[in-house]
Write a protein that binds this DNA or RNA. Structure first.
Lengths: 212, 212
DNA sequence: CCAGAAACTTGACACTTGTCAAGAACGAAT
DNA sequence: ATTCGTTCTTGACAAGTGTCAAGTTTCTGG
């Protein structure tokens, strides 16, 4: 019986531990989300923990309580950010029943992303560049890159399938192409170039049938 | 005669002024080159004027003497850096007499660049990302981007010409494609991925005949 | 209700940063 | 040789940085 009790007691403590862990992790994500706001505004180079704290409901000490250091925080931000991005086009891919439908759905989301989430995306490009200098970022960044490549590949495959074809180039080349176009359009958009978005859409509209 | 003297005198002072300006500019470039060393090592975020000075033969004060502020210095670096890059493949384009020759020349230079100038290129990607946050960089970065696009276009046009064809996509799309591939290969190369360079070469070798 | 743990705040630390002023070294014209 | 403008060095300043320890509040199990 003593054994049962200790067993039950251990289960309870373990459950409590799990709960605490979850709460801890949920808080980390809250903090990461708050940090992303400032990071999107200022970029990695100009963002300090105090600035993050000031633009949020938290004090700068909390960040040190939940993260071992600044890099740990940023890494958590990057990882969290990933989850949001990768599924962006999945619904379009799942519901589209024709090439045109897929094209228009994709383009609409593309334009909306560029318009409304420019800050987050410039942060992504910033962090990807930082990963070339900072070893600590590399693993996460490479992983996200792979996920994005897979995301593009899902779109292209579906598009090809709807036309009874197969994509003509590799996942890597396709991702490079779309990522490059998006990056360039983003920069131009941020530089107040009103033609950036329409020209990106034109380009993609023209490109899709030739690559898939 | 008095007029001639003052005219001559003015010519002399003007000549002296031009000389001084040239000397001043030459010094600025020296300093920019020294700064590029450290920037390539540490990236924009972690590079301070003092660090630049310590890794060079100069003291940190000189930089303030020749540049109005840090951004001015970095801008000068970016502009100077541009001149080097844009002509990298011109010789290959000019001398190649067949598609194969052009391909192999291009690939060789591509591999060498990735191998030997990784530091400078990661700096470029860093600065391009910074331009999304820092207005002061945008003009120069957009200009360099245009030059690089033109550079890729020269290669593609020549390649197409040698096959009696024309490139099938726009300059923008072609640049996006190659830039995206290069950027991804660079990150992998810096992460000690030995397959990065050969896989890039394979990809480009496969791609060239399909786009031109 | 209360003790002890968890969550958070505050303020201080050591250090780095960009900037700049004061002056030294240098060079050239008089 | 002296004077004057250019070039460069040095040291200082204020602001900002990541980090952390000490203390306060809040929560929670008994």
């Amino acid at each position: 019986m003593a054994r049962q009790v200790t067993g039950a007691a251990r289960r309870v403590t373990e459950a409590a531990e799990v709960l605490r862990d979850e709460k801890f992790n949920a808080r980390r994500i809250e903090l990461a989300e708050a940090a992303l706001e400032t990071l999107g505004d200022l970029g990695f180079a100009r963002t300090s923990l105090r600035e993050i704290a000031q633009n949020s409901a938290f004090t700068h000490g909390v960040f040190h309580y939940y993260f071992s250091d600044k890099l740990d925080l940023i890494c958590c931000c990057v990882r969290h950010y990933k989850a949001k991005c990768v599924t962006r086009y999945d619904e379009v891919v799942a519901t589209a029943t024709s090439r045109d439908e897929l094209t228009e759905g994709f383009l609409a989301k593309l334009a909306a992303t560029l318009q409304n989430e420019a800050r987050m995306h410039r942060l992504w490009y910033d962090l990807r560049a930082q990963a070339m200098f900072e070893t600590a970022f590399r693993k996460d960044v490479l992983e996200i890159d792979k996920s994005l490549e897979a995301m593009i590949w899902r779109i292209a495959s579906r598009y090809a399938e709807l036309g009874g074809k197969r994509p003509v180039s590799s996942p890597a080349a396709l991702y490079a192409l779309f990522d490059g176009l998006f990056q360039s359009a983003l920069l131009r958009h941020l530089a107040d170039d009103k033609t950036a978005i329409p020209e990106l859409l034109d380009e993609v509209r023209r490109l899709l049938p030739t690559v898939c």
